[in-house]
């Protein structure tokens, strides 16, 4: 464990909690892509199947359980409890265009051709693009609530911090995972445009709105 990994995990946790609280407090999931949240639930489920096969640490196990629980709670709030507020018309990204190629890539490019390993690889690839339906939704409506931008910032920051963690581990632990690194770079790059808007607009007290 190093400082980048810990702050990355906490940033990830903050993002998940911010989103849950935003939906719960406002009793609404307006502006939130249910499709992205389903993809994240799939990501956690396929990656954390190793909860059943290997134990790493109490920290590792409890964070995994919290992430999975929160992901399903979020999906439940969007599609069941506050379904009436879900903006399905604007959540029109075709997720099969992500899931199918990512599934194919996971079968072709992995560390080991075994069931759990392919699911792990699938989850890494899928996570890197899972935010696209949400970003697509924002580009379609042209705006996002400020609390939603805080969520996105924490979620993007998490993988950026993990990149620093992998550099650290490369030098100090001889740890090198090409699949995670390439996917992590892709994931972080997808947020760059958003990071720019967040810093130049939201942090200066303005609402995030895109030019028409």
């Amino acid at each position: 464990m190093n400082v980048f990994r810990l702050t990355g995990d906490l940033s990830h946790l903050a993002a998940i909690i911010i989103l849950l609280l935003k939906i719960w407090k406002s009793r609404s999931c307006a502006g939130i892509s249910g499709k992205s949240q389903i993809l994240f639930a799939i990501v956690f489920t396929t990656r954390y199947l190793d909860l059943l096969t290997s134990f790493i640490s109490i920290y590792n196990t409890s964070m995994k359980v919290i992430y999975i629980g929160c992901a399903y709670a979020t999906v439940y709030l969007i599609y069941m409890k506050f379904r009436a507020t879900y903006d399905g018309n604007h959540d029109s990204f075709r997720v099969e265009f992500l899931v199918v190629p990512v599934g194919g890539l996971a079968v072709l490019v992995n560390h080991d051709f075994s069931f759990l390993e392919i699911l792990w690889t699938f989850s890494i690839y899928l996570e890197s693009v899972a935010i696209l339906p949400q970003l697509f939704m924002i580009s379609k409506t042209g705006e996002a609530e400020t609390i939603t931008t805080h969520y996105l910032f924490c979620l993007g920051l998490y993988r950026a911090l993990y990149l620093l963690n992998w550099i650290w581990r490369f030098y100090f632990e001889s740890f090198f995972d090409m699949i995670a690194i390439v996917a992590g770079v892709v994931q972080t790059v997808l947020y760059c445009d958003f990071f720019y808007l967040y810093i130049t607009k939201v942090l200066k007290g303005k609402k995030l709105s895109l030019p028409a």
Binding site: H12, M63, Y67, H111, Y162, S174, F175, F176, M178
Partner: peptide, 10 residues
């Protein structure tokens, strides 16, 4: 130097 990977992250 020998490099390895393991799935010990979140």
């Amino acid at each position: 130097r020998e490099f390895t990977y393991q799935h010990d992250e979140l």
